[in-house]
Amino acid sequence: MQAIWVIAKRELHSYFDSLMAYIMLVLFLGFSGFFTWLFGSDIFMVGQVSLEAFFNVAFWTLFFFIPALTMRLLAEENKTGTIELLLTKAVTDRQVVVGKFLSTFLLVSIALAFTLPYPITLANIGNLDVGQVVCGYLGLLLLSAAYISIGLFASSITSNQIVAFLTALFIGLFFHLIFDVLAGQFTGAVGLFFDALSLSQHFGSISRGVVDSTDVVYFLSIVFVGLMLAEVSLAKRTIQ
């Protein structure tokens, strides 16, 4: 447990030292703030005391930003060879993977925490449905966790950060969009199957304020499978 925290702390430091964290925070808050308050179907346009606009923007911005955050996690270590130093320390492959996952998850959580003034402002303007907002944030956290684990896996299979970024985006695109589109194309069992795989469906139901255990299980299984595959691809060096 201590090793996981040590690794997560180092990664988090590295995010802030390399300006990556600041760029991510500024862009994320800029985008989501702009589209929530100022432009498009923003809150004043819709005219309801609801953070739906924000959740929709965050749904897309996180989809693009998270691969950019996760791409260097393992790919850089593969390239510079520091992975050899890290894995010959008294840590397991799993601790490395979970530690790196945790670091990015914490960074995204910080970014989301900075948006808390939005619901606080709204609660002052009108009658905010607190339950729905809490569910929306929970949905964003679960979605982030899922994309981080996908990104981490993509980063573990290559030593090129661009490849890691694109791979993560490519895999993410299926969950984000393609399964949803396919679900609309088919009827019956096949349609239901793709519907069950679609991340936007599950996110949608959580952000509407309905936390179903199947939705939570869905996100946690993506996290679990992603982290497991990342660990397997690290462990691959021992068999070859």
Binding site: Q2, A3, V6, I7, R10, H13, S14, D17, S18, T80, G81, T82, E84, L85, L86, T88, K89, A90, V91
Partner: peptide
């Protein structure tokens, strides 16, 4: 693993870390 100290070929290091932080990081991991 914790009984072994290892210096790999080509000596890979985290170039963006200060020496003292890096050594503390390694100590904590070990």
């Amino acid at each position: 693993k914790r009984y072994i100290g290892y210096l790999p070929e080509h000596n890979p290091l985290y170039l963006d870390m200060p020496v003292i932080d890096y050594l503390q990081f390694c100590a904590a991991l070990q």
